[in-house]
C-alpha cells in the first residue's frame, strides 16, 4: 500500500517537474548583473585570475567558513562514532 502511494506521488512530482523544466531556456541566464560585476572588477580588486576562487574565499568568505565548519563537524562525528566501536571491540576481546 505504501509502495503504491509513494510511486503515485513520484509520478505526480515527475510530471510537475517536467512541466517546470520545459519552461527554462538553456544558455541564457535571466539576471547577470552581479556576476558581470564580479567578472569585470574581481581581477582589479582582488588581483586574481581565477574568479571562482575570488568569490569562494573573498566575496563569499562567510559561506566558506561555514562550509569548513560543517566538514570539521562531520569528521568529528565520524571519529566519535568509530572510537565508540573500536573501544567496544577491545572490551570484548579482553
Amino acid at each position: 500500500m505504501r509502495r503504491e502511494l509513494s510511486v503515485l506521488i513520484m509520478i505526480i512530482l515527475a510530471i510537475f517537474l517536467f512541466i517546470m523544466a520545459a519552461g527554462f531556456t538553456f544558455g541564457s541566464p535571466l539576471e547577470t548583473d552581479m556576476d558581470d560585476y564580479f567578472i569585470m572588477n574581481g581581477q582589479e580588486q582582488i588581483a586574481t585570475n581565477n574568479i571562482v576562487t575570488t568569490i569562494v574565499f573573498d566575496y563569499r568568505g562567510f559561506d566558506t567558513l561555514g562550509e569548513s565548519t560543517v566538514l570539521f563537524t562531520a569528521v568529528i562525528g565520524v571519529a566519535l562514532m568509530f572510537r565508540m566501536i573500536v573501544r567496544g571491540d577491545s572490551d570484548e576481546n579482553e
Partner: peptide, 22 residues
C-alpha cells in the same frame, strides 16, 4: 598575486587533507 587567497587555499587544503584521510 591574489592577496590572502593563496593562504586561504593552503589552510583549506590542509584541513581537507586531514579530514578526508581521517
Amino acid at each position: 598575486t591574489g592577496g590572502f587567497l593563496p593562504l586561504m587555499n593552503i589552510a583549506v587544503g590542509i584541513e581537507v587533507w586531514g579530514g578526508l584521510a581521517i
